[in-house]
Design a protein around this nucleic acid. Sequence first.
DNA 1: CTAGGAATGGACCTTGAAGTCCAATAATGA
DNA 2: TCATTATTGGACTTCAAGGTCCATTCCTAG
Lengths: 204, 204
Amino acid sequence: MGEPRITERGRATRQRIIEATGQQILAGGIGGTTLDTVRAATLTSKSQLFHYFPGGKAELVREVAVWEGGELLAAQMPFIEDLGSWESWHSWRDALIHYYLGLGRWACPIGSLATQAAMTDPELDAVITASMATWLDALAAGVVKMQANGHVDPSADPRRIAVAILASIQGGLVLSQPQKSSWPLEAALDTALDVLHQSTAPPR
Amino acid sequence: MGEPRITERGRATRQRIIEATGQQILAGGIGGTTLDTVRAATLTSKSQLFHYFPGGKAELVREVAVWEGGELLAAQMPFIEDLGSWESWHSWRDALIHYYLGLGRWACPIGSLATQAAMTDPELDAVITASMATWLDALAAGVVKMQANGHVDPSADPRRIAVAILASIQGGLVLSQPQKSSWPLEAALDTALDVLHQSTAPPR
DNA sequence: CTAGGAATGGACCTTGAAGTCCAATAATGA
DNA sequence: TCATTATTGGACTTCAAGGTCCATTCCTAG
């Protein structure tokens, strides 16, 4: 019972399905995305969807989450791997905003999935959680570097700062959506980054 | 064609439906909430649901949003109307955390609805947006009071600070959900409030 | 006490979307 | 070339969930 060999053509079709589904989920949510609309958008047939995603819609959505997580991280490269200087943080911040801008919609592919389906599908929840954890780790590592370089108070908790920054991104996007503008996101994120500048250890 | 007179009994049933639906949406999202499960939970019949909400599920969800918005605001009373002193902010913060704790799940009834159905239902979107705006206004008014009382730098933009705080709440909840703990929410919110303490005008 | 309207019960209809199945075609490797 | 397997097409089935309808019961005002 070997894995079915997959050809280049098949791989491309599979990828096309994932990306189209990602688009539709971002535009209309999981509920607003049906296998039929995906099929239409990708010029595929029902059997193909289940050929590449035997687990049906649930598996497809999970694969979308995995892929979106990768895209999100890739969009922050190479700065997310540095974050050891103010310039690096600034570049990272710009790259992130630019990524969300490119999506054409003020929403986080990962964050919105988190609120939509965490309780419904435990496996999807695991994917989302892992993606968030990776992201959080990267930010925390950056804070540690800043501390090592003497730019940030060494007594501050890196994970706590990282959480605050990540939360400002997610929350900023929630508020940006109705405003159809990036300003809430930018305001929230920049405010969170100011905290880093001020090198404060939390008083509470 | 006068409005149908509504009796006390009817009003109670209607309210029971709204609250049960709110519970289910919080637990399983809009997609995970069906009229049948609501009917079962409220010991009502299909006809009652449509009797009180002729617009069907969409109208019911909207009414839930309105009600949840009211509850959320009420939970922050009376502090949200003050916010003119550090003690007031602190009490407000505690009341808010306590409210979310009482929900038994780390999610915002309003914020999660925002991500779930903004694009699907414009009318629901309007309700959510209005609720957020009210909340934001209250926080901004508090910041203005703090400035008037000489506790915060008068050159700071109150709405910007309010957005940062609200974003930290929404984002903190997004991160708290997978952790099943309040600490991300508290970390994010407290960090945002620190900014207020430091009376900083945004440098960017 | 009684008529009319509110409240309720529940069977029934309809639709949309997930998922199944089998046949046909294209590619690949021996 | 040819057998095998991946890929594709699309009809068909199933079922959950929203929504309709009408009969029945309960309440209230006059």
